Simulated scan of single mutants.
Amino acid sequence: MPRRLIELPLLRRLKPGLHVHDEEALNAEPPLDLLDEAITPVDAFFIRNNGALPDIADESAWTLTIDGEVERRTVWTLPELKDAFETVTVTAVLECAGNGRSQFSPATDGLQWRLGAVGCARWTGVRLGELLRHAGVKPSAVYTGHHAPDRQIDKPERAALSRGLPIAKALAPETLIAFAMNGEPLPRLHGGPLRIVAPGYPGSAWQKWLSGISLRPQEHDGEKMRGTDYRLPTRPLHPGEPIDPKDFAVITDMPVKSLLTRPAAGFCVAAGELLTIAGFAWSGATPVVGLEMSCDGGTSWTETPLQQGEGLFAWRRFETQFRAEQPGPMTILVRARGAGGQRQPLEMPWNPRGYCNNQAQRVSGRITAAD
């Protein structure tokens, strides 16, 4: 079936306002005001694809194969997974490693995400570690390799994406094979019927349409796991400098970050009125613990309370009110910090693939004279 015929019915389910990027693969992100909920609605969640969406005619016939460095090769249907293992729910932020890539200067290769390639959802499934232990993890296993039926648009004989996880993360209790999102069966656009959920890791590690897991005796070398794909330089690199893939390491921990969902850029507030400022903060492996806010372009900063999130891997909301006073331009900045002392930078160091941009967000507007 032609790719667009598969995608059109799915696109109609998106919330109006999502920006569909001008790419061959289907990629879309919401405006920031649609991210102003603790649990991001499915129809407002960003969509990331590296290739064509697979045509899945019968989900009831879907199987998941576990092989490689295991004692027993196993094959599971979706009903068998649900019957054999405990069903658990983990609330976690999913963010594309390239979120915010459009802010890098000079520009880098890759999809020019704005700031909306992120969301927080309740993911329900079974623990990946339980499946692997059932299959018998050999001491030689150091990495998982994940497989799915999506293919490159220009090279349909090749997988679009095949990434994996270090064995410790694969066995961690928060890592799931999910079959539901926000209490409903996992939508096709978000990887249904099965996907990996790897809280704290970049979205590329959350393999969609999961059909196979092979345990590997070395770091997985599947599609988009070689060269500089989803990797950060291990030393500072400057624009124009020669690139050696040996100087790059796989991204396994997303940085501490925050997002202003209110007010929108270009806001106007009258002098003497209260302006609501709200958004979320989150981190990767290390919990987010605090947030500072500036309403004068970074000259002064105020500690802003964070509300409790739904678990260690969910984002935490902040909401406060600022009384506008002197008419003129106004710039709001927020920067989060993690339990390990890491803090969002005011300016993000450049990297050649535009990954992990967590520079403090700036939202500018104006205070107008009171009537």
Results as ranks from 00 to 15, higher is better:
16 P>F: 13
82 K>C: 04
255 P>R: 01
312 L>A: 14
191 G>N: 12
190 H>T: 07
330 M>R: 13
165 L>G: 05
60 S>E: 09
32 L>Y: 06
130 E>P: 06
345 P>N: 14
325 E>V: 15
226 R>M: 00
254 M>C: 06
181 M>C: 15
356 C>I: 05
359 Q>D: 04
134 H>L: 02
280 F>S: 05
116 G>R: 10
147 H>N: 07
285 A>P: 05
159 A>K: 03
4 R>C: 11
75 V>Y: 02
211 S>Q: 06
326 Q>M: 10
160 A>H: 02
81 L>N: 03
280 F>C: 06
124 T>L: 08
213 I>N: 00
355 Y>F: 07
371 D>H: 01
181 M>F: 02
47 I>H: 11
128 L>T: 03
57 A>E: 15
99 N>L: 03
185 P>M: 03
370 A>P: 13
160 A>Y: 00
62 W>K: 13
185 P>L: 13
216 R>K: 04
86 E>N: 11
110 G>K: 10
348 M>D: 08
327 P>Y: 03
359 Q>E: 12
233 P>T: 02
214 S>F: 07
64 L>Q: 01
238 H>P: 04
190 H>M: 06
371 D>N: 13
53 L>G: 01
179 F>Y: 05
253 D>C: 11
163 R>A: 06
192 G>F: 01
183 G>W: 12
286 T>E: 14
123 W>P: 08
340 G>Q: 08
88 V>D: 04
96 C>G: 07
186 L>V: 15
87 T>I: 01
217 P>E: 15
